Simulated scan of single mutants.
Amino acid sequence: MTNTSLDRNESHPGYWDSPWPVECGGNRRQKASSGRLDAHEGTPSVTLVENQRWNVMTVRRDPGEWYLGGTMPAFSGPPPFGWVQRYDPTTLKSRAESPHLPCGDHVWCGAILVHADGSVMSVNGSFLHRLDPDDLSVICERELPVDRAHNGLLALSDGTLVTKDLRLEGQGGTTLTFLEPNNLEVTETIVLPEGSMGRIAADLIDGVDSVYVPGTEHIWKIDVTQGKPEIADWKCRYRNQGSNSGLAWDSCISDDHLWIMDCGDIEGVRAIHHTLPNGRFEEAA
């Protein structure tokens, strides 16, 4: 068995040099950071802020530069929108906030990251935005090729961005969309043989970015070599069509294995993704 590299021990060339520039701390989604809390030497305290929003994830740029990204739980009524906030890590008060970011009227948790060029990237619904890291104004906006909610946003070793739409079993194949980071131009798309609900993970070995996608029956591997993505011969079946086992959720690469969660097809998720726009209903449940 080989030892999978640890996100916390190395910098990734696609991201700003930060210990937590992307969801879960790195493309392998290992959810661990270096350092220690020494909590036994301090006095515990809790700072709480309620904002009536769907707060999805937080990432860090430079020391003290923390960003929170999310959407609105607008399952009915006024249209939803994405948003990113730069906040004080001690008081949690907002220091800057993006304008309302179009999301194609889809309601689902998107993703944010701090790119190697210093800008903040945000995917929400069917839109991708590049934001100024200081005032979070919109530098560039791109409507994605597929008009569905998207989740998972990673930067590859050359800075290319990759995201995907969400599909349950029987809803066709999920599309992976690859974009260059400056003007967010689409460079490649790949339609998988299956739908996918879980977020993507990636590893970088010998100059090849390998993106792992949890499908409805298999885990798929997409190798990106010199900017060209191809579906690899390797795939792993984890369930059968129509199985009582749930769809794979987010994945983690560690100890030379891929770890997945079994909660991608619960009743609430099914309701959200069986309606278009995703998550929008005429009346509140």
Rank of each mutant, 00 (worst) to 15 (best):
T174V: 11
I219P: 01
S119P: 03
L37Q: 12
L128Q: 03
D223A: 14
G26M: 06
I139M: 08
E282T: 05
F81L: 11
V211G: 04
L154K: 02
V191N: 09
E143W: 08
M197C: 10
T47P: 02
L161M: 10
L136R: 13
Y238P: 05
E65Q: 15
G159M: 08
L184M: 10
I190S: 01
I253Y: 01
L128E: 01
C24M: 09
F281Q: 14
K31V: 09
L101C: 04
M72T: 15
W54N: 12
G82H: 08
T275D: 01
P19F: 15
S18Q: 15
V123Y: 04
S254Q: 04
L156W: 05
G159V: 11
D256S: 06
E65V: 02
P78I: 05
L131T: 06
V213I: 15
D7F: 07
G207M: 09
V224R: 04
D134I: 15
S210N: 03
T90P: 01
A116L: 10
G246P: 02
S5A: 07
R167Q: 12
G69P: 12
N3D: 00
D250H: 15
V107L: 11
P79H: 06
H274L: 04
D223N: 14
I190H: 03
S18D: 15
Q241P: 00
A248I: 02
V224Y: 02
T71R: 07
T275N: 07
W20D: 01
D206L: 00
C24W: 02
T175S: 14
T2D: 00
G25F: 01
E283N: 13
I219W: 02
Q30M: 06
K228G: 00
I190P: 01
F178T: 06
